[in-house]
């Protein structure tokens, strides 16, 4: 058990190192940050000075060593655009992204499970077919188009919901939240739907498939034979059994939700890490880009590590095999 955890942890560090090399080398070469910083008519000498002050004329190996050494202490340098430490910028933006990601996940779980259960129990009803159709359309349209369509419908045409931003936020310690104000809650609706729609589809299909499978198993048949009510069978036994994989998937997907928030945040001008990343890409703000990539990988790696360990705790059979099912 300890050996397993240790191995996983070492592997996680390896992942982070690999990501660090990739992100550094990619961002080292994407566009010239100096051009973003100076204006069109800055002289060549000044440009050189700027280049020097950024350490861009050092050997690449040195630049990387410096970069990684700092990153390990959460020092990501100062953003070229905002002249603030990247770590504080990320910390400032993280609540927005996490809140959006959590709301999107909750939205996806609640509706995904409800729709999945319904379409498993009433396989041939019209509503189940509609759910299936909606879920298929949900994965067949690009996220940005869905976002724009939602804005077009609910903000511009109907005027019900805001089209951008977080609304009013309340500061609780270092965390900012939009959950405590009406405008903040309203602002969360459209982005959460846009971001969560895909997860919803995923969960709905998963619940449906698992339910169908479980309902076929012997012990459900046995329960039926024992004369338990349909409701008790469906919700007490079948659903309970499907929830473990559903929660696992939702947990594993959480990292991806954060990563895919890039697109949703761009469409809704949501002031989170994803928007920061996109703006950084446009402005070749290397420190932000590199830090974002490392942060997101760190989140992924942590989630994976936790899930792995939980698995071995929950399911003793896995302790010997180590690898969880793909």
């Amino acid at each position: 058990m300890l050996a397993f955890t240790l191995r996983r942890a070492i592997q996680a560090i390896g992942v982070m190192l690999a990501v660090g090399i990739i992100s550094f080398s990619m961002f080292r070469f994407a566009g010239d940050p100096v051009n973003q910083i100076v204006s069109l008519d800055t002289s060549a000498a000044e440009r050189e000075a700027v280049r020097k002050s950024l350490g861009l004329d050092d050997p690449v190996v040195m630049q990387f060593a410096r970069y990684f050494g700092n990153a390990a202490q959460f020092k990501f340098g100062v953003s070229y655009q905002f002249r603030q430490p990247v770590s504080s910028l990320l910390a400032e933006r993280m609540p927005a992204t996490l809140e959006l990601a959590i709301c999107a996940t909750i939205f996806a779980m609640v509706f995904g499970i409800l729709m999945g259960v319904y379409s498993a129990l009433k396989r041939d009803s019209a509503l189940a077919k509609i759910f299936q159709a909606v879920s298929l359309i949900g994965i067949s349209l690009p996220t940005f188009l869905i976002g724009i369509l939602l804005i077009y419908l609910f903000s511009v045409t109907l005027g019900w919901l805001p089209s951008f931003g977080r609304g009013d936020v309340v500061r609780v310690g270092w965390w900012t939240t939009g959950l405590l104000t009406l405008s903040g809650l309203k602002a969360l609706i459209l982005p959460s739907i846009t971001l969560g729609l895909f997860q919803l589809t995923l969960i709905m299909r998963l619940v449906r498939a698992e339910m169908l499978e479980v309902l076929r198993t012997d012990y459900i048949r046995f329960a039926r034979a024992r004369g338990l009510t349909t409701r008790a069978i469906h919700f007490g036994h079948a659903l309970k059994n499907t929830l473990v994989p559903v929660i696992t998937v939702a947990g594993l997907q959480f990292g991806s939700v954060i990563a895919f928030a890039i697109i949703t945040e761009t469409v809704f001008q949501w002031p989170g890490m994803g928007l920061l990343f996109v703006q950084a890409v446009q402005n070749v703000d290397i420190p932000i880009m590199a830090a974002y990539l490392l942060m997101v990988s760190l989140i992924f790696v942590t989630i994976n590590l936790v899930v792995d360990i939980l698995y071995t705790v929950v399911d003793p059979r896995l302790r010997s095999t180590i690898r969880r099912p793909a």
Binding site: L202, Q253, S256, F260
Partner: peptide, 11 residues
């Protein structure tokens, strides 16, 4: 988000 499905769609 679609891009992720296959990996974990049905564990």
């Amino acid at each position: 988000s679609d891009a992720v499905v296959p990996h974990r769609a049905e564990p």
